[in-house]
């Protein structure tokens, strides 16, 4: 470093440290699905059978993504020292997307409900699953 300002040093090392944490988290999230079955086995071994592989994957994939996003937003975008209402503003926009999901998913995510049925979507799911099954029986490796 050309200029050895104390403050600058401190700031830069802080950013590098955050970056290091992010990389560790990235590694964990890639290894998550690989290790999940082993963890499930090990957990069952010590009597924690409620721990399932998909839980591990979900946690390593999305739990870590949320934490990574928080680290970047707080430290790199400096939301931690920005005025509070900016955070509230962005949170509001995010909440609207949760609202959108909540209002839309009953119709789009599900194919059947009270007095209604999405016949076309069910047929497509059936068709695709059958063709995948016959493919894998046909010995095609994926």
């Amino acid at each position: 470093m050309a200029e050895h300002e104390e403050h600058a040093e401190h700031g830069q090392s802080h950013y590098v440290r955050i970056w290091g944490i992010l990389l560790v988290l990235l590694t964990v999230s890639i290894l998550g699905p690989v290790l999940a079955p082993h963890i499930e086995e090990a957990a069952a071994g010590v009597g924690a059978a409620f721990v399932k592989g998909w839980m591990i994957t979900l946690l390593t994939a999305f739990g870590i993504a949320i934490y990574k996003a928080y680290l970047v937003a707080a430290n790199f975008m400096h939301l931690n020292i920005e005025k509070r209402y900016i955070s509230y503003l962005l949170a509001t926009f995010l909440t609207l997307m949760v609202l959108f999901f909540a209002g839309t998913s009953p119709d789009v995510m599900k194919h059947k409900g009270q007095n209604w049925e999405n016949v076309a979507a069910e047929a497509e799911v059936d068709r695709a699953l059958k063709s995948q099954e016959s493919d894998s029986h046909g010995g095609e490796h994926n």
Partner: peptide, 9 residues
């Protein structure tokens, strides 16, 4: 996400 959850295939 909606589609992904609604379509097991």
């Amino acid at each position: 996400v909606m589609h992904r959850l609604g379509h097991p295939e």
